[in-house]
Nucleic acid binder design. Structure first.
Length: 196
DNA sequence: AGGAAGATCTACT
DNA sequence: GTAGATCTTCCTA
């Protein structure tokens, strides 16, 4: 039960994406504590990945991809904030997108942030998860390995029984490798299907 | 000014 | 289950 150090993130985003499954993301909010088990991730590379924000060069809004590993990279897509964590050593852009979590602590507060009928719909998508956790661009650039950060990722010892992979979801131009990873049979994994 | 972007919700068959 | 509208930034022209 400890906060994952920067060295955890200073590796290939694919490896980090897999290792993040089963880890717990904790969010401190007004003295309350929200947390969830990470059940679905995607890996994004840099200049050579057509689906990466860094493809073709770093633009102003994705400059934090050049920061230390463990840095939060948050941006808006289709009206949703998506939360990524920067990987590889400083200066080499790449990241892991958190796509879904299994709610653990603070579910009442999450339900206040996002009204849903079924608890399974609370955080089973990248935009749903950030909304439920009350995460916006204001945390862009913070580092999850920093204990004073309002968002940390900790290891509570949980290890997924079985991990599946697929192509990334929603991307218009994907790489040949499968870079989406999720815990098999977990009901909190997003329902979205990768395009054929 | 216009359009694309790693998505989500609603309203149907 | 699928189709279409719509969500909000940021980039490009």
């Amino acid at each position: 039960m400890y906060i994952l150090p920067k060295s955890f993130y200073a590796r290939d985003p694919k490896v980090v994406a897999i290792d993040l499954l089963g880890k717990v993301i904790v969010r401190k909010l007004d003295g309350e504590r929200l947390s969830g088990i990470i059940v679905e991730t995607e890996a994004y590379y840099g200049f050579n990945d057509p689906a990466s924000r860094a493809y073709g060069g770093i633009k102003p809004f994705c400059r934090v991809m050049l920061e230390e590993p463990g840095t939060l990279f948050i941006y808006m897509v289709h009206g949703n904030w998506l939360l990524n964590i920067v990987t590889l050593p400083k200066g080499i852009p790449s990241a892991v997108l958190i796509r879904a979590v299994e709610p653990k602590e603070g579910i009442k507060i999450m339900l206040r942030n996002r009204r849903v009928k079924r608890i399974y719909d609370l955080t089973n998508g990248p935009g749903k998860f950030t909304k439920a956790f009350g995460i916006t661009k204001e945390y862009n650039g913070l580092n999850v390995a920093d204990p004073s950060s309002p968002i940390n990722i900790i290891d509570e010892g949980y290890r997924p029984s079985s991990i599946e992979s697929s192509h990334r979801i929603g991307v218009s131009r994907d790489l040949p490798q499968k870079l989406r990873f999720y815990i098999k049979d977990n009901p909190y994994v997003s329902k979205a299907k990768p395009r054929a």
